[in-house]
Design a protein around this nucleic acid. Structure first.
Length: 428
RNA sequence: GUGGAUGUAGCUUAGUUGGUUAAAGCGCCAGAUUGUGGCUCUGGAGAUCGUGGGUUCGAGUCCCAUCUUCCACCCCA
């Protein structure tokens, strides 16, 4: 084959073999979100660039170098969304969703875009399942949100997804902590790697996250954020932990857990996958973001799940999901008259919700049967001149070989349903 | 963005120190008395060897560039 071009770098087609699995995972997430009272929101795939600059913070890597930003034909700067939170906050405010009363609970399942060097689990177009919760500063909300994600993982059969937890405090206590970190790292600034050196002034908390051995060694003895949390933040954090414990949700405290977006406050968390070696998603509280975007001061929190990563994890752990039913009844036909009959019977079955099919490729009987077997049809039926004349045909169970004569006139569907449910009963 | 690998039919791969029409398995299509699939047998379609240059009498095999995918870093979902 000689295609004129391939799919763009960092994008992937989801073919039927994938989409089936995707939909099952999405169904679990959607159902879990809706059990918790969240409703779906759909926002534009692109926004005015300043929304992300203000929302995520201009010194973050994402905003500085990973955004798909371009001018539209009228000269406006727009950006393909690199994440879901900023747009959701904007839409929540713009549509006055808070007027229905707090809390506002929203979820979304959207493609996002970041210009990065692709790798397994890191695409330029990736899908995020996100959940955002507005209007509550209570620690019980943090716990409910985390519980939602953990239940979804459990329902999907993912065994190795953990929970890492930290609190990065509020702007007040973080200011003190930043100062303390700066002082600590400045004392041995010659040991820091170049990237960390540049982080020293802009965001010293990122140094805690550095994988460089020397930086890690330094970071290990660095002041802990927990020692600098103000009374309120400290209490909030310990209550979150207490709620999680009550729910039986295990977690690891990780003082070095710093999220990459500037809007986070207090609780931050990630869902690391042991087998994959990176997190399936993460989130936290962002009590200052709504106000930053121009809304009333509103506490909020949320998380995002990398759907592509989730699918990798499911495949890696060989989680079993039921196969899709492509065809339950296959009606083979011989001759033009029988083809017409097959098409109408199939159509009738469809109207009763039974997946059915007949030949549309002009194949012979043998090839039709072969196709029926390949698609996994439970039953097959052959229609020829004899059947048309007698008004009866033989319905065959493809796995047991058992057969049964059925009417192919008006009582066809009744006959079929009786037979097929009997077969179902035999299985249990 | 930095560093390192990779690329042969739809899929998984073989292809000797560069030498005639580039192999195989699986899959696909068609036959083996137009009336019944899964097994078997036979046949067929399908690759300008990622792309573009270069070296050579001659390149899938060597060189350069470029693209893709993958790995590490960076970062994150």
């Amino acid at each position: 084959m000689d295609l004129i071009t391939k799919a763009p770098k960092g994008t992937a087609d989801l073919v039927p073999a994938d989409t089936h699995l995707w939909r099952l995972a999405e169904q679990v997430l959607i159902s879990e979100a809706e059990l918790n009272g969240f409703a779906e929101i759909r926002t534009p795939a692109f926004e005015h660039t300043e929304l992300f600059q203000r929302g995520m913070g201009d010194v973050t890597d994402v905003v500085e170098k990973q955004m798909y930003t371009f001018e539209d034909k009228a000269g406006r700067s727009v950006t393909l969304r690199p994440e879901g939170t900023a747009g959701t906050v904007r839409a929540m405010l713009e549509n006055g969703l808070y007027n229905a009363g707090y809390p506002v609970k929203l979820y979304y399942n959207i493609p996002c875009y970041r210009y990065e060097k692709p790798q397994a689990g890191r695409m330029r177009e990736f899908r995020t399942f996100g959940v955002e919760l507005f209007g509550t500063a209570e620690p019980i909300a943090d716990a409910q949100l985390i519980a939602l994600a953990m239940s979804a993982f459990r329902r999907m059969g993912l065994e190795d997804v953990g929970l890492q937890l930290n609190s990065i405090g509020c702007p007040t206590c973080r200011k003190e902590y930043h100062a303390a970190l700066k002082e600590y790292f400045s004392a041995s600034r010659e040991k820091l790697c170049p990237t960390c050196l540049s982080r020293l002034d802009r965001n010293p908390m990122r140094i805690l996250d550095c994988k460089n051995p020397e930086c890690q060694e330094l970071a290990a003895a660095a002041p802990k954020i927990t020692e600098y949390l103000c009374g309120d933040c400290r209490q909030h954090f310990s209550q979150v932990q207490a709620y999680l414990a009550a729910l039986g949700i295990g977690f690891t405290l990780d003082p070095g857990l710093v999220r990459g977006l500037d809007y986070y406050t207090r609780t931050v968390f990630e869902f690391p996958s042991q087998t994959l070696g990176f997190a399936l998603g993460g989130g936290g509280r962002y009590d200052g973001l709504v106000e930053e975007i121009g809304g009333p001061s509103t506490p909020a929190l949320g998380f995002g799940l990398g759907m592509d990563r989730l699918m990798l994890a499911l495949k890696e752990q060989h989680v079993d999901f039921p196969e899709p039913v492509k065809c339950e009844v296959y009606i083979a036909a011989m001759g033009p008259a029988a083809q017409v009959k097959a098409l109408t019977l199939v159509n009738t079955l469809h109207s009763c919700g039974v997946p059915a099919d007949c030949d549309i490729c002009g194949r012979g009987l043998k090839a039709q049967m072969k196709y029926a077997g390949k698609t996994g049809a439970k039953f097959s039926m052959v229609l020829g001149e004899d059947e048309l004349a007698s008004g009866k045909a033989v319905l065959k169970d493809m796995s047991t070989g058992e057969t049964r004569k059925v009417d192919i006139g008006d009582s066809f569907v009744d006959d079929y349903l009786t037979f097929s449910t009997q077969q179902e009963d035999l299985r249990f």
